[in-house]
Design a binder for these strands. Sequence first.
RNA 1: CGGGGUGUAGCGCAGACGGCCAGCGCGCCGCGUUUGGGACGCGGAGGUCGGCGGUUCAAGUCCGCCCACCCCGACCA
Length: 587
Amino acid sequence: MRMSKLFSATLRDVPSEAEITSHQLLLRAGYIRQLGAGIYSYLPLAQRVIARIENIMREEMATIGGQELKMPVVHPADVWQETGRWDQFGDEMARFKDRTGHDMVLAVTHEEIVADLALREIQSYRQLPQLIFHIQTKFRDDPRPRAGLIRVREFTMLDSYSLDRNQAGLDEQYRAHYEAYFRIFNRCGLPVRSVGSDTGIMGGLEAHEFMYLTPAGEDTLLFCNQCEYAANRQVATFRKPDPPAEMLQPPEKVATPGAATIAELAAYLQISPAQTAKAVFLMAELADPLPPRMVFAVLRGDMTLNETKLVNALGTASSGAIKSLRPARDDEIVAIGASPGYASPIGIDREKAWVVADDLLTRAPNLVAGANEAGFHLRNTNLGRDYQADIIADIAQAEDGAPCPSCAGTLDASRGVEVGNIFKLGSRYTDALGASFLDEDGLPRSIIMGSYGIGVGRLMACIAEEHHDDQGLIWPFSVTPYPLHLVMLSSRDGSAERESEALYQALMDAGLEPLYDDREERAGVKFKDADLIGIPLRVTVSTRSLQSGGFEFKRRNQEERWIVPAEDALAVIRAEIEKLEAQNMGH
RNA sequence: CGGGGUGUAGCGCAGACGGCCAGCGCGCCGCGUUUGGGACGCGGAGGUCGGCGGUUCAAGUCCGCCCACCCCGACCA
């Protein structure tokens, strides 16, 4: 590709909207351009990187038996209504009506379509297992896109779906994906760690996320410093303290004027927050006919509520009717008989709220809790004696430094970007759409599904985040848009032009198309652009290099330069590419 | 959705108190010089000043409404 003809140009100044490195570099080097919030065009250079990433994905999917297909981006609403996700996805799903007035959606993911295909194609156990995938556009109308390509609304995803006759088959395909995904990230030069994760709106039994660790990430992860325990904070558990056993004391009302927070209460009574119980009020928005319902969460005063755990704990009690939680207003708190700032589950109207208590409270005696009367608290409250809970579950958030749940180690918090995830779904979707198969015994059984995804653009952005220096990008060879950057520096006698044109032709003939800087620019401009664009191997043809005996070779990530005679250039380029490929695989 | 910020040429920005033809740097076009780390000179092109409405003799500048984008939070496979 001649740079004189390349569609995009590099930018000298950083566009003001870009804050994180990958976004700045991808914009400056001419890979991407923004159209709207979270909506980007991928220019030719980016498209080539993406094509290489997708090629790696296809190869790895093939090794685990994946069959590529392509499912639609526009879906009729009915399949989404049948699984209930028409309501669950809410505003994140873009909806419109077609000309005949039928509800349509833009794909947010494709479980429903796969289940529908399974219904039509799979009749017999003989047809299972199956693994199908595609690399396709999704649109999720995220309320807050950010950080360039890290979090966008329109994106391309590799998503694959396994269909099995039983749990054992699912376990096997899940394992295969787990390993294939690590190989994909590894080949792309991106270090990732897997963490246990929430199943969220996908539902199902088990899920892992693949996380690229970076302070720019928006997920908080907890890793044990001694064992393999790793989890997203949304689901991370930790070993809770064991309070010393005490005789239960009788409740005692105390005046605590102005102590409406745990910190103020502990200070006023000169006790530790661990000797108090904290009340957190949320309103659960329920599926359509039902009115919102109060959720009253109670934790020991030194713990923080984890909303994901709370929603999961409520899942059973509410029959999965909860659409979302929001903080309750004071008037809603008063309406159940509680007093904001001085609340406890003691004496409230139990008919109007779900009380969810953290499991630590079952063995944390004699806590100070609100008296449901402004300015007063109760000493010595005890779960089970003074109040009851609808649900007792772990709803406390694991903090940095918490004790590991599975060994004597400590959990350390890190930030990460989720570049991929895998879910054991079970039969939620296939049952909803009636996709079953006949087993050997002639009885219909549910098809068991798994779903697996990697965000392609996000992966590219993370690679850029990981591989750059202050001059620009440094692509791993496996995803570089061109295998080498051929830089021609104009000469007085035309010799550099002649030699570089000859090399360009030879490379094209050899199937090694370079990015060829044939522009009439000064050396500084060309070198700066080459560094910015980040192709791992640079070959310069100039009067100076010719006088030194040939062409100058330089790796993007090294300072060293060396001269190769013109007649050896092609062979050396081949050898360099081989070395770069080998290096890449060693990541 | 709440809080904060920004919208002036392709990019980065300046334009007190309202006042004639709206500027600067980079980039872009032409000519010349230069030619190994973002050159120099001369000459050019390029603008609905985010939009609509208002105040005024006069609005990029003041007022109102709206829109877009960015950041923090809420939210989120």
